[in-house]
């Protein structure tokens, strides 16, 4: 049996969309963007469900944000998570990764769990810090960039992805936080049967007071990082258009690549 908590985030899909920065420069215009579960979290939830299916136990999924987050949480329930909790409070607005870690830890500390899975990073702000900070605050070990998880009698044997194609294998006792890298499984699709099961399921909501965290610990005031502004990098400064016939252009390109040490 293994009880796993998975922290998920709702993010905009900006892979093919045109990103427009709002006038105050501190956010992007998201009205025309589609939102979905963070890609890394999608692998994390799949891994947790696979472990539950193999070993028994329970998967609880937690998200921070307004009602719109329910859609992401329901998706996880439809795939096979057992419970979902949404953490929401006006005081949470403007939280950085550290403040989010504090919010998550406040909710998680009272729950029964063996392991906590987070995505290795989020596709929107790409900080990649929440999981590690969460583990620190909970006072438990963690592993980042996790590409394989085997759990046996409360001990996890995990593989981590390092620089330069190197891999590391660790044994970590429960409880621990694993920051899951993409590609370690094949996330299942949401099925009609799953949708049927969860569409009317109420998702409990907890505010700052319910998890015992004060307003000055979260939001902008409780954050370490203050977002100043977004900007789109100036285009073209480093770009060089190679002119000429295909033969000439290929020759010039090869010369440049050689000069830069690509070969």
């Amino acid at each position: 049996m293994v009880d796993i908590i998975v922290c998920v985030k709702r993010v905009p899909d900006t892979s093919e969309a045109e990103v427009i920065i709002k006038d105050d420069k501190r956010a992007i215009k998201d009205a025309d963007l589609t939102f979905d579960i963070n890609e890394w979290d999608n692998y994390a939830i799949e891994e947790a469900i696979l472990k539950k299916e193999a070993l028994g136990g329970k998967v609880t999924v937690i998200g921070v944000g307004g009602e719109e987050v329910n859609e992401v949480l329901r998706r996880c329930l439809a795939k096979g998570a057992d419970e979902a909790i949404r953490l929401t409070d006006p005081a949470f607005d403007g939280s950085d990764g550290y403040a989010i870690a504090k919010i998550l830890s406040a909710a998680i500390k009272d729950l029964q769990y063996d392991f906590v899975f987070t995505g290795a990073q989020a596709g929107d702000d790409s900080y990649g810090v929440t999981g590690q900070m969460l583990a620190e605050i909970l006072g438990i070990p963690h592993a980042t960039m996790v590409t394989k998880v085997d759990i046996n009698n409360g001990t996890a044997r995990i593989r981590r992805e390092l620089e330069g194609g190197l891999e590391e294998v660790d044994e970590i006792n429960k409880p621990a936080v694993f920051c899951i890298q993409t590609g370690l499984n094949e996330p299942r699709y949401v099925s009609i049967m799953g949708i049927r099961k969860v569409s009317k399921k109420e998702i409990p909501v907890k505010a700052a007071a319910d998890i015992g965290i004060s307003a000055d610990e979260v939001g902008e005031v409780g954050s370490m990082v203050k977002l100043e502004e977004f900007s789109i990098p100036p285009a073209g400064e480093l770009a060089e258009m190679i002119e000429g016939t295909p033969d000439e252009a290929a020759g010039k390109l090869a010369a440049i690549l050689k000069e830069k040490g690509a070969f």
Partner: peptide, 19 residues
């Protein structure tokens, strides 16, 4: 759309995008 219907649309989109 109801929550269920919205989930149906996103589930269909996700499955289709898998191909």
């Amino acid at each position: 759309l109801t929550d269920e219907q919205r989930m149906i649309k996103s589930a269909a989109a996700e499955l289709a995008q898998g191909f």
